[in-house]
Design a protein around this nucleic acid. Structure first.
Length: 101
DNA sequence: TGTTTGACGGACA
DNA sequence: CTGTCCGCCAAAC
């Protein structure tokens, strides 16, 4: 019955949970690793529905431009910088810090 | 039930 | 660099 979306969410969360500290991944990348090549928006939608206090490293997920597109941008940036990911002009250099599984 | 939105991505001008 | 347009699809309205 609606397991399709539920299963998708499950895979997305699992993939995000594998992102190592000090690295970031993009929505599109998560979608691909979760087996949904063309649904980066679904990833964003799932994250937006995450309950507060989740143990998931959601802060390591940013957009393909190396920018944070999320309501708590300041907090997310803080966490990433705390992991050693520098921001240059409000951006992360994906070339150097994108997770490469 | 139809339309609009949105934690996006990519191609183009 | 800044828009603009399109594809994708569940949730909100």
């Amino acid at each position: 019955m609606a397991e399709n979306i539920d299963d998708a969410r499950r895979q997305v969360l699992q993939v995000i949970h594998r992102i190592p500290a000090g690295k970031v991944a993009t929505y599109g990348q998560i979608a691909r690793l979760a087996g949904m090549p063309n649904q980066p928006r679904l990833v964003g939608r799932i994250l937006s529905r995450l309950p507060p206090g989740t143990k998931l490293p959601w802060h390591r997920v940013i957009n393909s431009q190396g920018r944070i597109s999320n309501p708590g941008a300041a907090r997310q940036r803080e966490r990433l910088e705390a992991e050693g990911i520098p921001f240059l002009n409000g951006r992360v250099r994906l070339k150097d810090f994108q997770w490469q599984p």
